[in-house]
Every structure is written in structure tokens, then in C-alpha cells.
Write a protein that binds this DNA or RNA. Structure first.
Lengths: 214, 214
DNA sequence: AGCTAAATCCCCCTTTTTGGGGGATATAAT
DNA sequence: ATTATATCCCCCAAAAAGGGGGATTTAGCT
């Protein structure tokens, strides 16, 4: 078939999902929209990667728990090969570690599997127009990851100092940045270590990040 | 009026927006939904904060460009006073710096002002059920902030080393973590500095973060 | 087979940084 | 009046960082 240049082109989609029923269900659902075309479906990342340059999908629906290569690793590999592909994770997991790993690996969205059919179609539309569809719970986790602990034991100045320390700066560099004497910074850091009950930079940074103080 | 305990309670909402027309428009729009109640509207953060404990809103719609206190600072102050309030930013700005500042300050969502009325009502519903509604562009920015540069000049080992260095660890601590000799780490770091054209830890970390290598 | 990139380890050296100890002072908030 | 916060000062020893010069091994590619 030949389309004129003004005709809206179909969006090529592949699916990576090991459960046959779920996979076929997704394929059927997506194919019901005329603008979408499911060019292939796979049971594993390995298979999807084999045909990646042949399929050249614009969107990939992907499960994370897969036989063989884990989905997160699959995302990493696929994005390396086709940097512009939009990978939409469809997973049962709302475990924060996994969610962030998937996003860091290059996912463009994350939908929980309990989402209805319409949510999945909405997500495809959303990702096509440059968005990053996420289920409520996921979006909230992502946004919260930006937010600091409101009950920090540290003063604002101490927090400021710790932030600069976490950027790898030396006491003297921090002093320069804050227009105070190096000894002042030393003093702040002593207090920070006391409050966090640590006695080294690395421990302080680790604890501060874990407690979202910085 | 008295509601029985089983009746769905109204959601109390306040609005902080300096433009009279926009503010009244929002108020009218939101009041059209029976489950929502606009308890007050304000032209500035200062005014909103004055009545915060009296209003006790569950959701605040907030503009960022405001006379007096800036919206970001307002978010910070309000969240300190009422940590459980959900602040929904409604702003024309899609400037990444401002978006992240607002989210870091404690916003639960970020909708661009060109969004239609239904999008705003949807966002309120979404935030009520624990989500973090964001306009497409914003969500994409947020998700991209998790993703690293795919064309890093560093090898994976070097990246690994730099990540640990950025956590404030010493050469020997890194060597311990990676089960190699301290001199190996030194060697990697020399190479990293060469590739990034820097000659100190702080510069390397700064450059690596700016280029999203870590 | 030859080349290259990557990762590993070794020595030299000096300067800087860190962490722990002991303080003091001024200001602002409660 | 007391406390918290921020500022600055000294001493000291150990650790770390940075720069210079190497070497070896492995894996991948041509």
C-alpha cells in the first residue's frame, strides 16, 4: 500500500510480554485502533532485540519480569540501539527500586498492569505526543523523589554546606562559595557529623541521601 | 449542614493566582463540580499563608509568578505548615529549572496553563487519588531527568568509579567496593580526568552531572 | 597475527584535605 | 536569660588527592 505524504502514518508498535494471553490481549487491543500497527510481538527481550532493526518500532510495550534477560536490561540495550524508541513499561510491580531502574534505563512511561484497557491506549497516545504516561502511584513516587525531608535535623546553612560537600567540593572551596572562612565550614561539618552520628564525608552523604536531607 | 459519616466529604480547595480573570475562572470551573469546594482564593502567597490554618485546604491550585513572594518559595512555606496539602502548580512556564524547583519545593503536580478546563479538573481528581498530574511536556522532562547520556566518553568501569567518587568515597573505599586495588582506582580516575578535561574531583563531578554521565 | 581498548597493578613524589580536640564571639530567636 | 545559629581561631596527625612515570593481561576487532 502507498500512502500520500499528507496521510497520517501508522505508529509501529511491538510488544514484549511472556504471558501469551496478556500479549495477545494487548496486540488485539492495540490493533483495534486504526492508527496503531502491531508489527511484532515477543516473549523475551532477546527475541525483540534480534528483530529490532527490522521492526524499527516507534513504541515498545514491555513487561519487566521476563524469561532470560530482565526487562530493565532489555530497555538499556534497546535504547542503545534505537535511542528514539519510546518504551512503555507495563508491569505489576510498584516497587520503587524497580520503577526507578526502569526509568533510568530509558523507559518513557510506566503503567501498572491493573490499568484498564483505555488507560493503556491513552498511554500510547500520550507517549506519541511526547509525554511520559505513568500510573498515579508511579507518578507520585517519581515526584516525591524530588522532595526533601521536611523534618531535617540540619539547619539550612548546614544543609547548604552538606550539598556542596556532596558535590565533591573541599572545605576551602565551600568556604569560597559561601564567602566565609574555611574554619566556619569545618565547624558546620563537625556539627553535621554530630547530628547525623557519622564521622566521615562518605557516611554523611550516604545518610543524608537516604534520609533525603539533600 | 450535617453530613452522615458515610457521605463523601467535599474536597476543600484554595486558589493562589494574581490574575483576577483567571482566578475567578478557576473558581467557577472548580465549583461546578459538586465534590469540590473553593473555600478561598488569593492573589498572593502571603495572603494564602495568613489564612492557611483557617482554610485548611486539601488542595491548592497555585500560580508561580506572583506579586511578592514567588510561588516556589510559597510552596516551600506552605508545605512546612501543612505537610499533607497537595499543591498543584498551574503555570505558563515550561522552563526546566522552574519546574524542578517547584517539584523540589513540594508541588504534587504541574499543569501548564494552556491546558483545557477538563485537564485541570482531571488533575484535581488525579491528585486526590494520590497521583501526580503533569502536562505531557512536564512529565517527559521529569522522566528524562532520570536518564543518563547514552554517548558517554567514559567506559562502564569509569562511570562506576565516578559514581562512587560522587558519593564522597575515597579511592581506597572505592577500591574496596569494587574488589580491586587502590592503584587501579587512581588509574581510572586519571583517565576520567583526562577524558573530561578536568583535574579535580569537584570539577569531574560537576561536569559529569551536567553532561548526565552519572 | 597484530592492534587497540580496557582493566588491572606498581612506584615515585608533594600538596591538600580531613577529622578530632580544644576553644571564642556575635546575633537572632524564644 | 537562655539557646540556637553562624561565624572564626589554634593545634595536630593521618589520610587523601593529584601528577609523573611505568607494566601486564584480557578481550575484541580487523
Amino acid at each position: 500500500m502507498t500512502n500520500s505524504s499528507t496521510t497520517t502514518r501508522e505508529t509501529k508498535i511491538t510488544i514484549v510480554e511472556d504471558n501469551d494471553v496478556v500479549r495477545d490481549g494487548f496486540a488485539l487491543l492495540i490493533s483495534s485502533v486504526s492508527q496503531h500497527r502491531v508489527v511484532n510481538t515477543y516473549e523475551s527481550c532477546e527475541d525483540a532485540i534480534k528483530n529490532l532493526f527490522h521492526d524499527r518500532p516507534e513504541i515498545i510495550l514491555m513487561d519487566l519480569e521476563l524469561p532470560g534477560m530482565h526487562g530493565v536490561e532489555g530497555i538499556r540495550k534497546i535504547k542503545k540501539m534505537l535511542p528514539d524508541v519510546n518504551i512503555l513499561v507495563i508491569s505489576v510491580h510498584t516497587n520503587s527500586e524497580l520503577v526507578f531502574q526502569a526509568l533510568c534505563a530509558g523507559a518513557s512511561g510506566y503503567i501498572t498492569k491493573n490499568a484498564g484497557h483505555s488507560k493503556i491506549l491513552d498511554a500510547i497516545t500520550e507517549v506519541k505526543k511526547g509525554g511520559a504516561p505513568m500510573s498515579s502511584q508511579i507518578a507520585r513516587m517519581v515526584v516525591q523523589s524530588f522532595q526533601k525531608n521536611t523534618n531535617s535535623p540540619l539547619t539550612s546553612r548546614e544543609t547548604e554546606v552538606l550539598e556542596l560537600l556532596a558535590k565533591g567540593k573541599s572545605y576551602s572551596a565551600i568556604a569560597n562559595d559561601l564567602f566565609v572562612h574555611k574554619e566556619t565550614i569545618k565547624s558546620h561539618i563537625k556539627n553535621i557529623y554530630g547530628k547525623l552520628q557519622v564521622n566521615s564525608k562518605a557516611d554523611a552523604i550516604e545518610k543524608a541521601i537516604k534520609q533525603r536531607l539533600i
